[in-house]
């Protein structure tokens, strides 16, 4: 079977109907992962016992495959009375999966802020949350933009996993096109190219952001 350019071009509009789903799930998952990851890391540092619990949780999240986590949320949780729609599982699943990695990114980011900054905030009589939000977080942000961007691209590329639970994202649509036409080469190549363009775009955006932050930290 030869590659058919006309067929490849003809499937693109159909695949792009999933673009919006792919994008909003990626954005929602990244936001969720960032919020969860930051919360995990702050809790991990708050006291010793909670620290052990959070460390364990973060390690479990990072040490199990994303597909296992997705299947667990979608097929196992209903046995315990928690039934979530495929899209919700997609967002929650990817948020949780990447929160483990982002917690590690934030750990490195916070560690790289000088301890004198914590002490100065404390000595001024600031509450812990004010030290975290007004002093540590802004300085940490500069250190975590690049690794965070990598995980955001990774999250984008993980959305095709959601095809297994029938979320109407781009790979799922491409698979359906393949099944209906018995031609997989064209839809797969089209999907691959669309992801490539998106990933390169996000990378560029992150690089710009990083440059801007580096410039502002040099003043």
């Amino acid at each position: 079977m030869k590659f058919n350019l006309d067929f490849a071009l003809s499937v693109v509009p159909t695949i792009l109907t999933g673009l919006f789903t792919t994008l909003w799930i990626t954005v929602a998952a990244c936001l969720g992962a960032a919020v969860l990851g930051f919360t995990f890391e702050i809790l991990r540092r708050s006291n010793r016992w909670l620290g052990y619990v959070m460390r364990f949780l973060i390690d479990v999240i990072r040490s199990t495959p994303v597909l296992v986590q997705l299947y667990f949320l979608y097929f196992v949780m209903p046995f315990y009375g928690v039934t979530l729609s495929a899209v919700v599982v997609g967002v929650v699943g990817l948020s949780v999966y990447y929160s483990g990695y982002l917690a590690e990114v934030f750990k490195g980011g916070i560690d790289s802020v000088d301890t004198g900054q914590f002490e100065a905030g404390k000595a001024l009589g600031l509450r812990r949350r004010d030290v975290v939000w007004s002093i540590i977080a802004p300085q940490m942000l500069r250190n975590v933009v690049a690794p965070m961007g990598n995980y955001f691209v990774s999250a984008l590329k993980a959305t095709p996993y959601l095809a297994v639970i029938a979320v109407p994202e781009m790979l799922g649509i491409a698979l359906e096109l393949g099944a209906n036409s018995f031609r997989y080469a064209e839809p797969m190549i089209a999907v691959g190219i669309i992801f490539l363009i998106l990933a390169v775009g996000i990378n560029q955006l992150v690089r710009m952001l990083e440059k801007r932050m580096l410039a502002s930290s040099k003043r």
């Binding site: 900054q117 000595a123 930290s217």
Partner: peptide, 12 residues
Amino acid sequence: GMVFQHFNLFPH
């Protein structure tokens, strides 16, 4: 009040 050896001003 406390003043540190390395100032510890907030750079941002």
